[in-house]
Each structure stands twice: as C-alpha cells, then as structure tokens.
Design a protein around this nucleic acid. Structure first.
Length: 583
DNA sequence: GCCGTTTTCGGCCCGACTGTTTTCAGTCG
C-alpha cells in the first residue's frame, strides 16, 4: 500500500527512502512466510514505515556520517540501514531472498492468502509464484491440500482477478464522490441515526484504499440489506452482523461497520485509525488498567465495559485532548495531545483567498468573471488569477500585450465585483535553462508571481534544484507552485534537494504552494518539513474551471495533515495583508 | 527485534469474520 511519499534520492545517494523501506518491508514479509516470531517482522515494518515518511534522504545522512534517529530501529536494524545506505546491498536481505522467491511475496497480495497459506502451498505443491498459484487453482489442485478446499480455489481465483483492478489507490477527490453518493442513498434507511465516512478518507489521505463507513443504528438489518441492494454494488465480499464488505462496480471495496449509538465514539476512533494511532491508544489504555476496543473500554480487573458515545470521551479517558482525524498517524500527535500542545489546525473557514487559478485566457475553461463569481460564491474574499506565461505553448501562454489587456479586464471586473478582488498574477515558467519567462520589469507589474517547473523534468537533481533556487531567489517571485511536480498516480515527484529549497524559501519569504488539485503537491510530509524549516506556505486550487475551485478544500486537508496553523498559511490573510506579506 | 517513571527479560493491541472445523487458526482492518 503506497504511503506518504518519502524524500526522493539526491545525487550523492545510491538508494532512496522508498527503496530502503521496500527492502525492509520485503524482509518482514519473508520472515512471516518463514514462520519467524511475528514481532521480528513487526519491527522491520515499523522501521520501513518510519523511513518511508522520513522527510530527509536517510541513506545520504548515513553516508555523511550523521545517521538519523529512526524510531523503532535499535542496534540491529540501524546496522542494516547503514549497510544498505553505504553499499546499496544488504546481505541479510539477499540470504532471505535465496530462501523465498519473489513470486511468493506477490502471493501475499491475494485477499485471504497470508504467510501461513503461502508456506503451506509451497510445502505441499511447490508453488512459488502467482502464475503457478492460478494454474494450480484452475486445475483443482488446491482442494487436495489439507486445510484447503474447492471453495478456497474459487476465492483465490477471484482474488487474483481483483489484484489487477486494485493496483492503484483511489484519489481522495474520487473517493469523496463515491462515498457521498453511498451516504446519500443510505442516510434515510430505517433505524440509521448517524452515517459517516471513516478510515483514511476521514483522515484525508491523498489516496484511499478501501472506503470505510460507520453507522450508528438501532437495528443493523435494514441498513445491511440496503447496502447490498445499492445499484453500484458488484458483489458482497463478507456479511456479518457488525460489519459488511462489498465491492463496487467501479472497483473499490466498501467496508460498512455498524454500532449502537451509545458506542459511537469508540467505534469512530477505531474505524478512523490509523492502525499505528490505534495501537498507541490501546497501549495507553492498558497503562490505565483498561482494554480499548471499538466496543469501548473494558476494565481489565473487573471486566466492566465503559461505553464512549463520543470520540472526546475516548481521548479524555486516556488523558488526551481530542485529536483531529488528519493527525491520527502516530506522528507525534499522542504526545502532543497528552501535553495539550496540539496545533490549532488551519480550517477551510480561515482561508480568505485562493492563490492559483486559471481562466479561458490560457488553458482554463471559464471566463475570468465566471471564475471570480464562483470563488466569491464559495466564500472567498479574493482570488489570484495566474494564467500561464508564453513558453508553455500548450497552454496558450500570454504575450506582454495580452497580459496588459488582461490587467484592464481585471480592473473592470474589480469595480463590478467589489469588495471581492481579483489579484493579477501569472504562473511563470521556469525554463529548462533556469531563465524566467518574463523580464523583471514585467514581473514587477503583477500583484503576485507564482513560478513553476513544467519542462526539463528529466534533469539531474542538482540542476533541477538550482532552477528552483533561482526562482526563489528572484525578488519578484512570490510563490513556488506545485514544487515537487508530482501528480497522484500519474507522475513521480522531482528529486529536488528539499532542505536547500526550504531553507532558501524561508530566507527569502517565498511561499511554497500546497496545491489541492489531483497533484496534491506539496504533500503533508514535505509541507510539514518546510514549515519546520521556517518556510511559509499557501493553499491553492489550481482551478481551470469553476467546479475545480473546490480543490482548495483538498489543499487545506494537506495543510492540516502537515500540522499547519492559520498563521503559517498565507491565504488566511486579507488581500492587502497578503500583498504586504509578499511585498 | 525493540524496549523500560513498576521491567535489561518478557512482554509486545483488539475483535469480527471465514473456512473447515467440532473448538480454532488464519486473515483482515
């Protein structure tokens, strides 16, 4: 399962964070298949997660003699990280690979097939790959293995067929739409008191695996029946009294959990996750003589069950402040909640203007006026219109003459739409050679200049970094837009040297954009690192049509996951204060 | 393999559902 993307490799590193994480994760799977004590695999997975989310290049830090403190890595795993970082190889990993072919790791992806089953299939039938497994199931060989049946064969074949469908995770934007439709269809079913999205959707992760729903009901029967009967349902995976899983025609799986209203709080905490956050909460409960599950708190000594109707009551009993869902990743939020120093996260309502929008003057669909009216309708006080500069030919970038004409049009609209304001900006191309697309005298005429890298993406890290630093260092450039250049499920991030970029942005006061379009760039780990380096950020929609102005909400979600407070986000200011800030 | 305001050894989070089973292990979230 993809996680928040890690820092990309820099030029002098031989192995990136995601490569390190993948190796450790593979070791964990192999240990499981070999039947090692489970906690060993747990330890490798914990370190894999931590490395994946680490904001700096872990291997480079090892090579520079300043090894980072990775949570969960003791002497043994730190030594293995060091070996991998310095040589690009890990002897231990290679020895395990000799015992467990890579095909056996792929078999773990089949739903219902875990390490025990993989081991069993290998021992009984010599199966070492997904293809061999499919063949054996098709030929009816699995039913001959003790503990397996003809039914297992069907499940395995169905599972293998589903693997291809589920290869990419849902973009948050699409998941929202699917869940909204399902909730609308089920909300009025008899006996449903509450119905909400939970899981990674509620935590507002950029990509979603399964869709999780929680319902408080008087009687689960009608709701479960209604779920199974939805037109968008392809088939039912599992149906119990407390939970049900279905697969939608579009591919994603929906897990619906039901609970009595009196246990809503503990269920919502449990089903919102993340796994690591929940594990930490349950450990904290045990410290207090309580066993926490979705049902509530069980007093260990007496077995008495203490219900938690609200989330706040769950956290309160653990001596914690209520933790916003976006922070529930076991990334320091529990300690912060214990010490009452959780951030006052930026909210959608704090944001007064959008700093990146387009119109039909370049590659947008709607007129400037339509965009402005729609933004105003969504509660904005202002928007920055940032149509493209000329060298981005595909986007009909604006000549100097058209820029002047656009300024006139904006002046006219600002009279008409006052007090709403359109600030005149540009999305300025940072050319492949690092030159900027308009001369400085012309840049000085814009209210706001946001600079972007769209071309020369294949350049080495140092060259890309120097282009970004060049733009940041130009006094007329106010924002570095979608800094990593990634697009979710489509395009990998550029391998910039982030510590240098963040330091330069903090020094010059150049804002770093959090773009809420399907780019979702910066992501939360980079945005958090940027803020910790002292840089200020801005949230923006990058809308090319009025409907896309809602992307601003997604940028706010990333900002919240990055622990940002209102002051750290530029657009929480009035238009005048924003202009004063970027001076 | 990690870790310690009760611990340097003995723990390490909890429950539902499924399948093949006569009481439970494996898988999943």
């Amino acid at each position: 399962m993809p996680r928040p993307r890690a820092a990309p490799r820099t030029d002098d590193s031989v192995i990136g964070n995601s490569d390190l994480a993948r190796t450790f994760s593979e070791i964990a799977d192999m240990l499981d298949i070999l039947g090692e004590v489970v906690y060993k695999a747990v330890a490798y997975r914990r370190v894999a997660d931590a490395v994946e989310r680490y904001p700096d290049d872990v291997a480079a830090l090892f090579r520079h003699g300043t090894p980072p403190k990775i949570p969960g890595a003791g002497d043994a795993l730190s030594a293995k990280l060091a070996e991998l970082a310095e040589t690009g190889h890990l002897g231990y990993h290679e020895r395990l690979r000799a015992q467990v072919p890579s095909g056996m790791l792929e078999m773990l992806h089949v739903p219902g097939v875990g390490p025990r089953t993989v081991r069993l299939l290998h021992a009984a039938l010599g199966i070492t790959s997904l293809d061999e497994l499919r063949l054996a199931a098709e030929q009816g060989q699995l039913r001959g293995v003790k503990g397996l049946s003809a039914r297992t064969e069907q499940n395995v074949l169905a599972g293998i067929a589903r693997i291809a469908q589920r290869s990419t995770r849902l973009l948050l934007h699409d998941a929202d739409r699917l869940v909204r439709d399902i909730i609308d269809a089920l909300r009025d079913v008899a006996g449903v008191r509450r119905l909400e999205a939970a899981g990674s959707l509620r935590r507002r992760r950029a990509t979603i695996g399964d869709l999780d729903l929680l319902a408080a009901v008087d009687d689960p029967g009608p709701l479960m029946a209604a779920l199974d009967g939805l037109p968008q349902v392809d088939h039912v995976l599992a149906a119990g009294t407390d939970r049900s899983s279905i697969v939608l025609r579009d591919g994603p799986q929906v897990d619906l959990m039901v609970c009595p209203p009196a246990a809503w709080g503990s269920h919502l905490v449990h089903f919102t996750g993340s796994r690591d956050h929940n594990v930490a909460l349950r450990g904290r409960a045990l410290d207090r003589g309580l066993s926490l599950s979705e049902k509530g708190f069980k007093v260990v000594d007496t077995g008495e069950l203490l219900l938690a109707p609200t989330e706040a009551e769950v956290y309160e009993r653990l001596d914690l402040a209520w933790v916003p869902p976006e922070l529930r990743e076991d990334e320091g939020e529990i300690a912060a909640a214990a010490e009452n120093r959780l951030p006052r996260l930026v909210e959608r309502g704090d944001v007064r203007g959008d700093t990146h929008t387009h119109s039909s003057w370049t590659d947008g669909v709607d007129s400037i006026e339509a965009m402005a009216r729609a933004a105003r309708g969504r509660g904005a006080e202002y928007m920055v219109l940032t149509d493209h500069s000329p060298s981005l030919g595909i986007a009909k970038g604006l000549s100097a003459e058209l820029v002047a004409a656009q300024a006139k049009e904006i002046g006219r609209l600002n009279v008409e739409l006052a007090p709403f304001r359109i600030l005149h900006g540009t999305e300025l191309e940072i050319r492949a050679d690092g030159a900027l697309d308009y001369p400085d005298e012309m840049l000085a005429t814009f209210d706001v200049v946001i600079a972007s890298l769209h071309t020369g993406r294949g350049q080495p890290s140092e060259r890309l970094t120097r282009r970004a630093l060049g733009a940041i260092g130009n006094p007329h450039v106010d924002v570095l837009a979608h800094p990593s250049g990634k697009i979710v499920n489509v395009r990998d991030p550029l391998p910039l040297d982030w510590p240098r970029v963040f330091a330069a942005a903090a020094e010059s006061g150049t804002l770093l954009e959090i773009n809420g379009s399907p780019r979702m760039d910066l992501d939360e780990s980079l945005a958090r690192a940027a803020a910790q380096a002292g840089a200020r950020l801005t949230v923006a929609s990058d809308a090319h049509r009025t409907e896309e102005l809602e992307y601003l909400d997604y940028a706010v979600s990333i900002a919240r996951r990055a622990w940002l407070e209102p002051d750290q986000v530029a657009g929480t200011r009035s238009a005048d204060a924003l202009l004063a800030l970027i001076g």
